[in-house]
Design a protein around this nucleic acid. Sequence first.
DNA 1: TTGTACTTTCAGGATCTTTTGAAACTTTCG
DNA 2: CGAAAGTTTCAAAAGATCCTGAAAGTACAA
Lengths: 166, 166
Amino acid sequence: MDIKEGKEKFLQSWGALGSSWGVNRTMAQIHALLLISPGPLSADDVMEELKISRGNANMNLRALIDWGLVFKNLKPGERKEFFVAEKDMWTVVKNIIIQRKKKELEPMIRILEELSEVEATNEASKEFRHVIKDIKLFSSKADSMLDTLVKSDSNWFVGTFLKMIK
Amino acid sequence: MDIKEGKEKFLQSWGALGSSWGVNRTMAQIHALLLISPGPLSADDVMEELKISRGNANMNLRALIDWGLVFKNLKPGERKEFFVAEKDMWTVVKNIIIQRKKKELEPMIRILEELSEVEATNEASKEFRHVIKDIKLFSSKADSMLDTLVKSDSNWFVGTFLKMIK
DNA sequence: TTGTACTTTCAGGATCTTTTGAAACTTTCG
DNA sequence: CGAAAGTTTCAAAAGATCCTGAAAGTACAA
């Protein structure tokens, strides 16, 4: 396979994967492009390679920066901004976990807390309380687990799970 | 808080959470509804409670069954089909992991394997191979880790991660 | 086999998300 | 300051996804 075809395929697949991970297609493709490019790229480079508009490139680059997956890289003497991707996969996944935990798990836990207040009168509300309690327990556990995961470093990840697999 | 309000809020939130988890809003709401209901519900019950059409209810119920999150429950003597939710949270999450691993991670790994074949001629293709190798390593590790997770039982999950947190 | 009770399908409409492109804004430098 | 180079914003268009409802399909009981 030649590099051109490979690149194409990678941009495609990473984009598809992204859309099922809360990162939209274009955002994921920009990330993919920066991942495999040896040096920093400008917004214009990204626009041209992916054939997307300036607005689109700009918005998604900013979002990637928010997620900690891409950094600005200002070349001295150059006015233009350049961008590089976070290339360590463990850091990439970690950042995604952090974002999604904040946006999804934590609000859910807060809501579950409120919902525990429902008074247990009839059968339906007893079942309700029971289910909510279960979910709350599970979510808090997942929450702590993710905290630990995120604090740990890449070696820990590799090490522990390699052992685990045996 | 009374049960009616609580239920409303739960259906709402579980629906929202679902949409960021590859389970669409309505599917998640149906699951939520079944979760908190003390007994099996029919398609008509679901339609009425969630104010959705028959087609929608049917399609999403089937999808939930595919995902292993809901089961048919045929009452003897009754012609109508009833449905119950999988209520064990660990099993719910496990099933979601299984589905998503199959639909997302595994195809990605296959593609990465193909992409390793790109010949390393210039700088760009060297970087490309390097990045692909990294991602492949990481993905395979994640894949094995998820396999182990999925094979393990709920107690293992609780036990190990409780220890891990300390 | 026919009628009844129920389930499944799917084309078209409704809704939500993403992208474009042009205008407004900011920064830098002569 | 004023022009050039670059970045950001956002309303409207395009595109993707989801839902409806009616028609077709199935299964059962008499």
